[in-house]
């Protein structure tokens, strides 16, 4: 900047610019940067907060009714579904979440997530062979959700459940993954 000022002088005389002026310019430049940094932060931080809001929220499981227990015959495994408790009006069909309900006897249940523990594909129940089979990479699970074959690293995800007044409730509302399996089963390895 100083050199430019010098070159501007066609006379080439040894007129040096006052040091005061330079420092004033430097100061103004810094001030410009500083003001913009503050303004940028004032706009930017809320933007980042908006974008990353999911990072700071927790999504606790919620109790959801699956209907009267009489819907589920003893010794059988049935497909059930529930409305995602947190659904939006514009979620359409995606608000309806399926799960597998196994009624062992009386009030003894196992409610499995539909998602394969390998990579999340929907497992299907085969009554005759008493197996859940996954259509993606050939994972299979036993009737009680234990790993039977294929790449899945653990048994099926299980919803916590309770029975109240002959009504079956599960705790759900999230997509279970290895990071948030809902139960405390151990991986195979």
């Amino acid at each position: 900047m100083t050199t430019e000022t010098n070159n501007d002088k066609p006379c080439g005389c040894d007129h040096t610019p006052e040091p005061k002026k330079t420092s004033r310019r430097d100061f103004l430049l810094l001030l410009g940067f500083g003001l913009n940094a503050i303004a940028g932060a004032m706009i930017g931080i809320p933007l980042i907060g908006y974008l990353l809001s999911t990072f700071f929220k927790s999504y606790p499981l919620q109790w959801i009714s699956l209907g009267p227990v009489s819907k589920f015959p003893e010794g059988a495994t049935r497909l059930a579904s529930y409305l995602n408790p947190d659904h939006r009006e514009w979620d359409g069909q995606t608000a309806e979440i399926p799960c597998w309900v196994r009624r062992i006897q009386e009030n003894d249940f196992q409610v499995f997530a539909i998602n394969c523990t390998h990579l999340g594909c929907p497992v299907r129940w085969f009554e005759e062979s008493k197996l859940f089979m996954c259509p993606c990479h050939g994972g299979a699970f036993y009737e009680n959700g234990d790993h039977a074959a294929g790449p899945p690293p653990r048994g099926l995800y299980e919803y916590p459940f309770k029975v109240e007044n002959n009504e079956l409730f599960i705790q759900g509302g999230i997509l279970p993954t290895l990071a948030n399996p809902m139960d405390d089963k151990k991986p195979r390895h």
Partner: peptide
């Protein structure tokens, strides 16, 4: 892991977001 999932899905489950 869970934070990454929530960030990717825009919530805890696959939906409109």
């Amino acid at each position: 892991g869970q934070q990454v999932v929530n960030f990717m899905l825009g919530g805890p489950i696959i939906a409109s977001e």
